[in-house]
């Protein structure tokens, strides 16, 4: 769905930014257009979405310091007892507004606070949204406004050569809870990947460096699905995910990753010893 929108946004990337600061008044309507009704209809049809009802909490920085690495945390407070079905994260005004969608499995866990955190790129002032779907099919949304004016520059790598080195290295960690009776553990996946957004001009060839980003991450605990995540280049370079999962027998995580070139990577806590 977002493909056409994404391509359009790319070609007018600089124009949108200029419009937002009043240089090109005639295109300002595009920058200020509320995209959410369209995004919502594409993702959820006309299903009702409860807003800010305490089922899901979205945390973003008060002030965005680096638009290329904006930490974003979704919490599902402990009073929510239901099993989780899915979680979708949007940044309305990004070139690809659909940041990530998680479909949870049996090892996602119940009985405590659940959470998911990652780092995103923010192209312009925008709403960020987390839409949680519970097992009963009900939808719950939390929204925050991101004051980020990084523009297209925010999408540029600090050190493109370092980013390409070691591509695919996937580090997985688990963190046991302070209380051993807690049925919820947490884990982390770090993937070395430039997450090219296709917007970087290669000045030697006058062409865009092709987009190449992590599009799918599957996390299993002791062979059971925690979640399968579909992601876009709105995730920062070197995608990083912190999440909760149900305590199991061994609490071993296996992670498989696929990028848009169809290249697969994997990581596990099993081979890591001595910790």
């Amino acid at each position: 769905m977002t493909h056409a929108l994404k391509k359009l946004s790319r070609t007018v990337c600089g124009v949108v930014l200029a419009a937002s600061i009043g240089v090109l008044a005639d295109t300002s309507a595009f920058a200020e257009e509320d995209l959410w009704p369209t995004l919502r209809a594409e993702a959820f049809g006309d299903r009702p979405i409860a807003e800010e009802n305490g089922y899901v909490v979205l945390e973003t920085p008060k002030k965005v310091e680096d638009a290329a690495i904006v930490p974003l945390t979704v919490r599902i407070p402990p009073h929510v007892k239901d099993k989780l079905k899915s979680l979708s994260i949007f940044i309305d005004n990004n070139p690809d507004p659909k940041v990530a969608t998680l479909n949870f499995g049996p090892a996602a866990g119940v009985g405590g606070e659940r959470s998911f955190a990652t780092r995103v790129r923010v192209d312009n002032f925008s709403h960020a949204r987390a839409v949680l779907e519970l097992e009963d099919g009900s939808l719950h949304m939390a929204t925050k406004f991101l004051s980020a004016a990084g523009g297209c520059a925010a999408m540029q790598a600090k050190d493109p050569d370092a980013d390409m080195a070691g591509i695919g290295k996937t580090v997985v960690r688990t963190f046991s809870p302070a209380l051993s009776s807690n049925p919820i553990w947490s884990g982390q996946v770090m993937i070395k990947h430039p997450n090219h957004n296709g917007m970087q001009l290669d000045i030697n060839t006058a062409t865009f460096i092709p987009e190449r980003y992590v599009r799918e991450v599957t996390v299993e605990r002791d062979g059971e699905l925690v979640f399968k995540l579909d992601s876009t280049f709105s995730i920062s370079t070197n995608p990083n995910f912190r999440f909760t999962f149900a305590k199991g027998d061994n609490n071993e995580l296996d992670v498989s990753v696929v990028d848009t070139d169809g290249v697969a990577f994997d990581g596990t806590t099993k081979r890591e010893s001595g910790s």
């Binding site: 600089g14 930014l17 990084g150 523009g151 520059a153 001009l201 290669d202």
Partner: peptide
């Protein structure tokens, strides 16, 4: 390379 990829953002900002 660094300036080429940041040109639009730098100018606007």
């Amino acid at each position: 390379r660094a300036l080429g990829t940041r040109k639009e953002g730098y100018l606007a900002a």
